[in-house]
Design a protein around this nucleic acid. Structure first.
Lengths: 123, 123
DNA sequence: GACGTCGGTAACTGCAACGTAACCGGGGCG
DNA sequence: CGCCCCGGTTACGTTGCAGTTACCGACGTC
């Protein structure tokens, strides 16, 4: 067991949930963040990503595997076990992702204020 | 007239077209890039963004205006004239966008190779 | 009077994303 | 026997995004 994933990515206070950037599809960025500290099993990923159905998580993981961002390792055991880990290529995404998340953390309130102003002007 | 927009953003060689990142929606990032050098009219934006329908471009611009990224200025003239310009907040996005585009420029071939490998393993 | 310009909007259509629920194998366990 | 475990797959329905087409007003031009 590596360290737990303490963050709730769906917390409205979490900038990653409000970033205007996305990686690939809607969930791929969050999956990469969940893998940052080490390999995870399918069902471990489902805990922090509880808003994602198994189907969509499986599709997201296969897309990331296809693009060389993660590796999928199946162990021939009972009960079956599979884990997913970042590749070196996947790790190269973090600087860019961090820049996006930093932008969101810094400017989120400005965006929300702009939306309020816009709504009031329309009203 | 400011300088023209020479790049074809849909050129397969253009990394911005292959970035796994998006800003907001599918087109917003490209619109911001097109506005980087100065204000543009609606129909000027349609030239480099010729793959976007007028409807979607209008929706994208309104979303960016709502979020305080661009300003819309309508001149009461005949024929009507409207232009769009980046706000200071919109300009703050460029460092993060540049990080994303740099990632794509650097790693695009690796992603394409990974896809080829994946397709061959599946075949 | 017909047509073009500019910056859109409205209505319709198709399709991809996403969610839900059921089901799978192959063993362990009560 | 019957049910649980894990890591999914399959079928099916809904939602929302994107594209196409047609149309608008107010004026200039042929």
């Amino acid at each position: 067991m590596i360290s737990p994933l303490p963050r709730d990515l769906f917390d409205p206070a979490c900038p990653s949930n409000a970033t205007p950037f996305q990686i690939g599809d809607k969930w791929a960025g969050m999956v990469l963040v969940c893998l940052e500290e080490g390999p995870r099993r399918f069902s471990e990923l489902r805990v922090p990503l509880h808003r994602v159905s198994a189907k969509v998580l499986a599709e997201t993981l296969r897309a990331l595997e296809r693009d060389g961002m993660v590796t999928r390792t199946a162990y021939d055991e009972v009960p079956p076990r599979v884990d997913y880990a970042l590749t070196p290529l996947g790790r190269t995404l973090f600087p860019a992702m961090d820049a996006c998340r930093a932008w969101a953390a810094e400017h989120l309130t400005e965006v929300l204020d702009a939306r309020d102003d816009y709504a009031r002007r329309g009203a």
